[in-house]
Amino acid sequence: MSRAEVVESVRPVSPLWTFGLLRSELTTTFRRWRTLALLAVLAAVPVLVGIAVKMETSDGSSPGGGGGGGPAFISQITNNGLFLVFTALAATLPFFLPMAIGVVAGDAIAGEANAGTLRYLLVAPAGRSRLLLTKYATVVIFCLAATLVVAVSALTVGALLFPLGDLTTISGTQISFAEGLGRALLIALAVAASLIGVAALGLFVSTLTGSGIAAMATTVGLLITVQILDQIPQLHALQPYFFSHYWLSFADLMREPVYWDDLTKNLGLQALYAVVFGSAAWARFTTKDITA
């Protein structure tokens, strides 16, 4: 209690200490079986999509039924394996990726409280704000890691099953393979950034409850609810404020020239969610009684 206060006021905690806390958080998170299983599921999605497209087109027919059905970019995969990256991200972004984020973010505080380890974390002279910030940083790094797992797995499968080479943007212009790879990396970053809103939401929910399962279920439930509401035309006035509304804007990076309007809207919206729910989580976490 007040001993910690005295310590901090006398000797400021070195910034390196925060870094150490972050590192230990990261190792704890990424060593969990649950996290590894989530990443394995994410890595399996591009494999499934790749094999399905390969099988469907082995007789020379075009994928997606030829009429432009299926996830974005799917009709291009057979011509260039790099498009599997975009298709896999488009396929996982609506559900698999945010679900994984929801599980990790929901678990961040509530899971510790559930396991009775939160009080020990707080005994360390890190301070609650710092702990919360570290937790959020861990979740954001997980967002990036999860997206990169999907992208790298898709690139590997795409390179193994389909030809690579110069690619055609959706505007019909040609770009080199190297530039295509650069765009793929940008797209992965844009997808990872699209998830920081959900991450903040999940962290806030996590501070509300002492049960890790409840926090995860609430976050994933909210995610599904918002996605459904985003499909209802009568709510079009509200939809620009749903965190998932501009998610597919990452495809605009494949236009030539890039169409930035929706991309910047998406980033702004994610930042807004991060600030609002991040500060709400801070307000809740720094004032609540820790009983476990």
Partner: peptide, 30 residues
């Protein structure tokens, strides 16, 4: 319960009231 360095609640009614107000004040941020 252990409290973090940036939180101090000690006994006494005055302190309790003040901390209650301070708790509410944090929600002003979001």
């Amino acid at each position: 319960a252990p409290y973090a360095s940036d939180d101090s609640t000690t006994g006494g009614e005055v302190d309790e009231q003040r901390s209650g107000r301070r708790k509410a004040a944090r929600y002003v941020v979001p």
